[in-house]
């Protein structure tokens, strides 16, 4: 019985190959098929990871190939974890992450809720709403630098029009208080449609019959929303938060294009800081330790989150 598929496979392959295959066990055949993927995974993911961990204990600098490499133990980790600048960068990242997630989930879900109610032109609106996420982040960054321009920017003009303030009196990307919000607004504009699409999939997966049963039980719309819509769409919402959380933790291009990490270090997110350490300062060992810390943080948080997500799905 076990050999029947093997014989079929052997018959379908050229004779010399077939002779070789017919002599192999199922397990060996399976390994042959999986081996290239495992090799690629090891070469492209696992080996660099192990190498990065190894480098993180050294003072290696890739731009000084002639310099002796010293084993420094945990010194890189100690320096990173006691560096006020890096903690400030972590804070800036957390601020960006939390606010973009809150805004994108709220607005994305609201848009999905509206679009889910079929109306004339809803497909057209859906297409129009998802347009920003089709653009390159570098283009969006450039585009928003013009919108935020105090003298000619539409954003400043609109705020001026609504509040009566002089549009040239504030600079979204040059002011310490406003710059963190400037990057949050641009990212929210670009990625809310993505959250909306996931929420829309969640809303459309709720069977109509449940609402009909609720109607029979005379449940109000408000009650239906809280007891049917939200719980059933929650796994999708959590999935959207996971995707956006991971993406925004490594946010780079949009922010570099918009503010370059400034003013000062106000919008220097960890990914920008890491890139500077690794490829501008060329502190390879130090930046490897930095990358390991970030990896462990993201991996740990994502693991906890995925467990919570699975629990919600099981309910």
């Amino acid at each position: 019985m076990t050999h029947a598929p093997m014989e079929k496979l052997a018959r379908a392959t050229p004779r010399p190959v077939a002779r070789r295959i017919s002599g192999l066990s199922d397990r060996a055949i399976a390994w042959i098929f999986v081996a290239p993927s495992i090799f690629l995974l090891l070469a492209v993911n696992i080996f660099p990871l192990i190498w990065t961990v190894r480098l993180s204990f050294t003072d290696y600098r890739v731009n000084r190939p002639n310099r002796d490499v010293e084993w420094v133990g945990l010194r890189n980790y100690e320096r990173i974890l006691t560096d006020d600048g890096i903690w400030a960068t972590m804070q800036a990242t957390a601020h960006f992450l939390i606010w973009t997630l809150v805004l994108q989930v709220l607005i994305g879900f609201a848009l999905a809720f509206l679009i889910n109610r079929k109306f004339r032109g809803s497909d057209l609106w859906t297409t129009a709403i998802v347009l920003p996420m089709m653009l390159s982040p570098a283009v969006v960054g450039n585009f928003w630098t013009f919108l935020y321009q105090p003298q000619i920017g539409l954003f400043n003009y609109a705020i001026g029009f609504l509040t009566g303030a002089d549009p040239a009196s504030f600079s979204m990307i040059g002011d310490v208080a406003l710059a963190p919000w400037a990057i949050i607004i641009a990212d929210t504009w670009m990625w809310t449609p993505f959250v909306m699409l996931i929420c829309l999939a969640g809303l459309r997966s709720i069977p109509e019959s449940i609402y009909e049963a609720a109607e029979c039980d005379r449940a109000s719309k408000w009650r239906q929303f809280w007891t049917i819509t939200i719980p059933m769409a929650l796994p999708f919402l959590m999935l959207a938060v996971l995707f956006r959380g991971i993406e925004n933790f490594k946010m780079f291009d949009l922010v570099v294009q918009l503010t370059g990490g400034g003013p000062g270090n106000t919008t220097t997110l960890t990914s920008i800081d890491l890139k500077r350490e690794a490829f501008e300062r060329w502190r390879t060992g130090y930046s490897s330790a930095y990358a390991v810390i970030l990896f462990v943080t993201v991996f740990g948080l994502a693991s906890i989150y995925v467990k919570a997500l699975n629990k919600v799905k099981e309910r």
């Binding site: 310490v176 400034g262 003013p263 000062g264 270090n265 500077r276 060329w282």
Partner: peptide, 23 residues
């Protein structure tokens, strides 16, 4: 110096933080 990039980045950060960010 060979470490010019390190030196430059430190100056960029300190000066921008004071002149533009006002810290």
């Amino acid at each position: 110096e060979p470490a010019y990039a390190d030196l430059l980045l430190a100056m960029q950060e300190k000066v921008h933080d004071y002149v533009v960010a006002g810290n």
